[in-house]
Write a protein that binds this DNA or RNA. Structure first.
Length: 355
DNA sequence: AAGTCGGGGAT
DNA sequence: ATCCCAGACTT
């Protein structure tokens, strides 16, 4: 089939059935599209929507974002995951303001150089918000293309990825860039879904080679799986008589980078030593909370929370050891980023103490 | 090329 | 329980 036939079928379908009411499709601007694209990386639309609304309310433009504190950016990112996205977003806003006079560059190449913006995200921003001809290759497009052309292999593989980019370039029309980009995403998100695709009403049904194989959901071929390691940690929940909890800011790199979390220990004795190192001379009542398991992309984490209730409040925190600590009050919380399990535990504790 | 980065929705 | 989602970045 010709590229024109493909893009016409896709564009005609979009005109009639595409999504046009998503929050970032209103008052379209490079800023709004950029924020939405970053949030949507590896994250489903329904999850993103409330985060996007809150973010736009607080940071309506790139200038307000560029002067924000990182803590406040990560606060609005709490629960969304992949926190490097939030840190990169913040850094990118500073670059746009300081080096581009607050205006996003109008080329895929320049956009790709900005932190957190790769080839596909750059193309999405360029095509949707600027009408620039630029092929994208996100999860939706990968699914549509691997099915329509029965492309074998896992899309993460280099050779497969190369072929998919080449297909995407070949099929993307020189006109209607915004509509075509949005159309491919919509097709993948609403019809050509991971399971139970609606092939019966798909505009590409006549030429879909994946459907002709009788099992279109075999495409894209699944990622070779690998067992996730199991790790353990004790979360040390130190509380003072005021009902506040001791939190530390995690290093920028690594898991939960830049977020605030409880001190940790490998075992119960190490936890006690940690409490004494942080707050020398304190006496605390220990209370074990129910353990639970938290799953990341690449490992499982068994979490054992232990509350250390201080009998008297000591203000002698070892400043040299812990320059980044705070006493967090769940009743009047600070605008800082919290790891999801930390947020859950804090909420759980505060609702138990003040039912 | 493989590993690192989250959390939640769908199944 | 597993899989995967509008991926980018580091090693």
């Amino acid at each position: 089939m010709t590229a024109q036939l493909f893009s016409k079928a896709v564009l005609d379908w979009y005109e009639q059935y595409g999504r046009k009411n998503l929050p970032w499709q209103q008052q379209i601007s490079p800023y709004r599209v950029w924020v939405s694209e970053i949030m949507l990386q590896q994250t489903q639309v329904t999850t993103v929507i409330p985060y996007f609304e809150r973010f736009m309310q607080r940071f309506p433009d790139v200038f307000s974002l560029s002067t924000a504190k990182q803590d406040e950016v990560l606060h609005l990112w709490t629960g969304l995951g992949y926190y490097a996205r939030g840190r990169n977003l913040h850094a990118c806003a500073k670059t746009i303001v300081n080096e581009y006079n607050g205006l996003f560059p109008h080329s895929v190449e320049q956009l790709s150089e900005l932190p957190g913006i790769g080839r596909s995200t750059a193309a999405a921003i360029a095509s949707i918000s600027m009408g620039i001809h630029a092929p994208i290759l996100d999860g939706n497009v990968k699914r549509v293309l691997t099915r329509c052309f029965a492309v074998p292999g896992w899309p993460g593989d280099g050779q497969v990825q190369k072929r998919l980019w080449s297909l995407a370039e070949e099929l993307t029309p020189n006109h209607s860039s915004r509509q075509y980009t949005q159309a491919m995403m919509d097709l993948g998100a609403t019809l050509c879904t991971r399971s139970k695709p609606a092939c019966g009403i798909c505009p590409l049904q006549p030429q879909c080679l994946g459907l002709k194989t009788g099992n279109p959901t075999q495409f894209p071929n699944s990622k070779p799986k690998k067992a996730k390691p199991e790790k353990h940690t004790i979360l040390i929940m130190i509380s003072n008589p005021a009902g506040e909890y001791f939190l530390q800011q995690r290093p920028q790199q690594g898991i939960w980078g830049g977020l605030w979390s409880f001190p940790e220990g490998t075992d119960r004795q190490a936890a006690r030593l940690m409490v004494q190192r942080l707050l020398p001379g304190t006496e605390a009542l220990e209370q074990e909370l129910p353990p639970f398991r938290h799953t990341f992309s690449h490992y499982h984490l068994h979490i054992q929370p232990v509350v250390f209730r201080l009998q008297r409040h000591l203000a002698t925190v070892q400043e040299t050891d812990n320059p980044n600590h705070c006493w967090y009050n769940p009743v009047s919380p600070d605008n800082i980023g919290l790891a999801a399990p930390v947020k859950m535990l804090l909420q759980q504790q505060s609702t138990e103490e003040y039912p």
